[in-house]
Simulated scan of single mutants.
Amino acid sequence: MTLRDIFEGKKKWRAHVARVKALPREYQTVYAEIQKYLFKAGPAEVTEGNDLLAGILDLFEEGAGMGKGVLEVTGRDVAAFCDDLIKESSL
């Protein structure tokens, strides 16, 4: 990994974090919990790249844009939502 790759990765991560901060507060809270869960229990590629997290963020932005509550997007069992994501990412 080159220095340029590191800087590019940081730049992308900062843009990702800015998108998260633009979400409504309830979405930010659930996103933070999902992120913690995936970093602990999720597939290795969550820590290597943020494609899974970016997909969740896209879903959250769409739900917020439609005026839905975050639990309408994830379902009431957020852990089950995460487990389903992990299963799908390992296929």
Rank of each mutant, 00 (worst) to 15 (best):
M1D: 05
M1F: 08
M1L: 12
L3N: 09
I6W: 03
F7C: 12
E8Y: 04
E8P: 02
K10T: 06
K10E: 11
K11E: 13
K11G: 11
K12V: 12
R14A: 15
A15E: 07
A15H: 00
A15I: 01
V17K: 12
V17L: 15
V17E: 12
A18W: 00
A18K: 09
R19F: 10
V20G: 07
K21H: 13
K21Q: 13
A22N: 11
P24Q: 03
R25K: 14
R25F: 11
E26R: 03
Y27N: 06
Y27M: 10
Y27W: 07
V30T: 09
V30C: 08
V30A: 12
Y31V: 11
Y31C: 06
Y31M: 14
E33R: 13
I34F: 02
Q35V: 06
Q35D: 09
Q35E: 14
K36C: 11
L38I: 08
F39I: 02
K40N: 07
A41S: 09
A41F: 10
P43D: 02
P43S: 07
A44K: 04
V46P: 01
V46Y: 00
T47I: 11
T47H: 02
G49R: 07
D51C: 13
L52Q: 00
G55P: 03
I56G: 00
D58I: 14
L59E: 14
F60C: 13
F60N: 06
F60R: 04
A64T: 08
A64C: 12
G65R: 03
M66Q: 14
G67K: 08
G69V: 05
E72D: 14
V73K: 06
T74D: 02
T74S: 08
T74Y: 03
R76I: 10
R76V: 11
R76W: 05
D77I: 07
D77L: 10
V78P: 03
A80W: 02
A80S: 11
A80I: 04
F81R: 02
C82F: 03
C82Q: 01
D83M: 14
D83W: 04
D83Q: 15
D84T: 09
D84Q: 10
L85A: 03
I86Q: 01
K87Q: 09
E88R: 09
S89H: 10
S90G: 06
S90K: 09
